[in-house]
Amino acid sequence: MARDADVPQQIQTDAKIVVKGITSVFHLKKTRTTPAGEFIALNDINLEVRKGEFLVLVGPSGCGKSTLLDILAGLAHPTSGGVYIDGKKVTGPALDRGIVLQGYALFPWRTVRQNVEFGLEIKKVPKQERAAISDNFIHLVGLDGFADRFPHELSGGMKQRVAIARALAYDPEVLLMDEPFAAVDAQTRESLQDELLRIWEATGKTILFVTHSIEEAVFLGDRVAVLTPNPGTLREIVKIDLPRPRHNSDTRSSAEFGWIRRKIWELLQNAPSDARPHPNAVPVADAISPTAAL
């Protein structure tokens, strides 16, 4: 199979992230009701992200958006194609990328501060320096006074703030966020979105944000990449020209916001007929986790 061999290790580019011809195929085992086969999670995805850009990947479940994020994080390998950061091919996870997951994924035995310092410990940053950095990021996400609390003492929204602080603390250039706000209530979600934009503007990170919420995508992104399932295909990249800084009430109530939201909704609805989800497709896609093994 064409794997890494025919993919160059380095390319010339000005873009921060280049996704080049990514195809990801899972082999399905034969079951009693279905024959053995292949499931194409991602089909020839090409994408470029500028330095400091906020790019959102939006699409229904089964469109391969989380798989793409795993590949970007270096936690999964594509069947063919390659991901480049600053022109260098991604071969595995590293500290140049930070990841924020839906389920917070905080270490329950570590305090807020110790969670935030986790990446710094891995990076072997001296203790005093670590404390200064974690103070800074705990302040950035608005959790002053909670540094010595444990995760089980925090609300969902606070936990996700800690997860963001943890991903930012070791100073990755790229932040990968996989439906980070999907598990919190609507109100917390909107305030977290506001706060994420503020943090993004303050830090200048390149952010790749995965969501299935069109509204969230339009509110946050510079551009929104619309993915359609079966096989996971990049349908279109929509530029979001809404002025910044964006604010919850003003931005969401503007006419352009509604117009762009509708446009993306139509893109997701009018997927080519052969790309419509197969009735059995969703459970299959959910059943496959390329990162399941330890």
Binding site: R97, I99, Q102, Y170, T291
Partner: peptide, 20 residues
């Protein structure tokens, strides 16, 4: 029964097997 998402978050930092 170690939480899969904790392992994922840790692995994304490039932790080796022993560190993990």
């Amino acid at each position: 029964t170690a939480d899969e998402s904790l392992l994922k978050a840790a692995r994304s930092l490039g932790l080796g097997r022993w560190q993990l």
